[in-house]
């Protein structure tokens, strides 16, 4: 696997398909994102293919201006989806990025509850089954119970903004969560549930369920469950799921026609 990835990186550079490649490298036991332009760069040998994850697409968006031509990115299916979404937000030019897709391990897929562990056209084949969806305890609750469940979790929030900071798709320069009038400025804990609901609503047509937010949350709030429920509903309601393709658009980002407005008259 490791060789195949390294080979794909070199091939991309040598063939001229990419002007640079972005990947995670293992350096002295640490994982460090690397941007290489030269097929002979020794870092390529150290390309990492384990279960650790990083928001490759966000780094890609940052480094793109420094790259001539196409930037190849070693990444997972999640990264492909992120890139699609970033493109919709006008933050990434898909013409100029190329995914060197790698499959996730079965363990990672199971841990993530991921139903899409293998990207289309991966650089290395692997037998990985889509995993069972993760538990969503809130789903079977009745309404008051559900509120209590969330309030209980939200009440642990320390307003570190970890969820937002780690989210590859939070691109707003000024964040709604920091707006005084909405969730109280700099107050700890934040106003709940407004703080978390606002973020959840904005994720409904954006979140690609990478789960990085939950990993970053020191308070162990089941953010993935929250966002997954909302985006699931969004899909049910509008038939739209973010990430899958770069072409389709969220119904909340165009006016559309009266006929498509659904049951309400």
């Amino acid at each position: 696997m490791k060789e195949k990835v390294a080979g794909a990186i070199r091939q991309a550079l040598e063939s001229g398909r990419a002007g640079a490649v972005l990947f995670l490298a293992e350096e002295e036991g640490k994982l460090i994102p690397r941007l290489v332009r030269d097929a002979g760069d020794p870092a390529i040998e150290r390309a990492y293919v384990g279960d650790k994850r990083f928001p490759a697409s966000a780094f890609a968006a940052i480094s793109l201006p420094a790259v001539d031509g196409v930037l190849a990115v070693v990444g997972r299916e999640c990264d492909r989806r992120m890139m699609n979404e970033l493109a919709k937000l006008n933050h990434l030019d898909l013409e100029r990025v190329l995914l060197l897709g790698i499959p996730c391990s079965q363990e990672l897929a199971d841990a993530c509850g991921c139903d899409h562990p293998v990207p289309p056209e991966p650089v290395a084949e692997a037998e990985v089954r889509p995993a069972e969806a993760l538990d969503a305890p809130s789903r079977s609750m009745d309404i008051p119970e559900r509120l209590a469940y969330w309030m209980d979790h939200f009440s642990r929030c320390i307003r570190c903004y970890g969820c937002r900071n780690s989210c590859p798709l939070c691109v707003c320069k000024d964040c709604a969560l920091e707006r005084e009038e909405l969730a109280g400025k700099d107050c700890f804990p934040p106003d709940i549930p407004v703080f978390h609901i606002i973020r959840a609503l904005d994720m409904a047509d954006r979140c690609i369920d990478c789960g990085i937010c939950e990993l970053s949350c020191p308070a162990d709030i089941p953010l993935r469950e929250l966002y997954r429920e909302v985006r699931g509903l969004f899909k049910e309601h509008f038939g739209y799921e973010p990430g899958i393709s770069a072409e389709d658009r969220s119904p909340l980002s165009f006016l559309g026609e009266a006929a498509d407005l659904g049951a309400h008259e």
Binding site: L89, N90, H91, V171, C172, K173, S253, F254, L255
Partner: peptide, 26 residues
Amino acid sequence: ESSCSGCRTCVALCPFEAITFDETKG
């Protein structure tokens, strides 16, 4: 301009096509 993240969402939503996108400034 200092807060706009350049996502273009609003551009498509104006019923009067009043919003344009300044590519240079983003």
